[in-house]
Amino acid sequence: MTLSALRDDALRTADGRTQVRLSLPWIRSLPVSCLVDPVVEIDGIRHDPVVALGERRVPARALAEQDGWWYIQDRVVLEIPDAAAPGSHDVSVSFHLEIPYLPGGPDSPLRLPFAFSRPLETGASVASVSRDVGADA
């Protein structure tokens, strides 16, 4: 597996919204449609995020209809409508990954649960080559 799905710079605010940048916790790149049922908790408050794909905002339930790839070095941006206050926050993200090339049953792909939690600072900065999924080149 790669680094934690919540890296040091995963929490940020932009345009009055909170964004959690989620790294792919899998051994190879996957279609973005493989992200299923993401949930974000910030300081114990549950949020059902939308997914920011560049300038577009897509409800998480509509990801199955999206083209595009979640490359292993890049991050999916989960967004909630209120901006987090500056400072440290307890952040948790849970979701499932569908692995399209591994069988999970007779007629369905493998679906794996993931959950990550850690304290994060808003706007932390670290050296990185990551891009946000759906961002223009």
Rank of each mutant, 00 (worst) to 15 (best):
M1K: 02
L6D: 02
R7F: 04
D8T: 09
A10D: 09
R12I: 15
T13I: 12
T18E: 11
Q19I: 15
V20D: 03
R21M: 12
S23G: 14
S23W: 07
S23E: 10
W26T: 02
W26E: 09
W26M: 04
I27Q: 07
P31R: 12
P31A: 13
V36W: 02
D37F: 05
D37R: 06
P38V: 14
V39F: 03
D43Y: 05
I45N: 07
I45E: 11
D48C: 00
P49M: 04
V50R: 00
A52E: 09
L53H: 05
R56D: 07
R56T: 05
V58S: 00
V58M: 01
P59R: 00
Q66T: 10
Q66H: 03
Q66I: 03
Q66D: 03
D67H: 09
Y71G: 03
I72V: 14
D74V: 05
R75T: 14
V76Q: 00
V76E: 02
V76H: 02
V77M: 02
E79I: 11
I80G: 00
P81W: 10
D82G: 07
A83V: 13
A83M: 11
A84R: 01
S88A: 11
D90V: 14
V91R: 02
V93M: 06
F95Y: 13
F95C: 14
L97E: 11
I99F: 06
P100V: 15
P100I: 14
P106V: 15
P106D: 15
P106A: 15
D107K: 03
S108K: 10
P109G: 11
L110E: 04
L110D: 02
A115W: 04
A115I: 14
F116I: 07
S117E: 13
S117I: 04
S117C: 06
R118M: 15
P119H: 11
G123H: 06
G123Y: 06
G123F: 08
A124G: 05
A124E: 13
D132E: 13
V133H: 00
G134Q: 04
G134K: 02
D136V: 10
A137T: 12
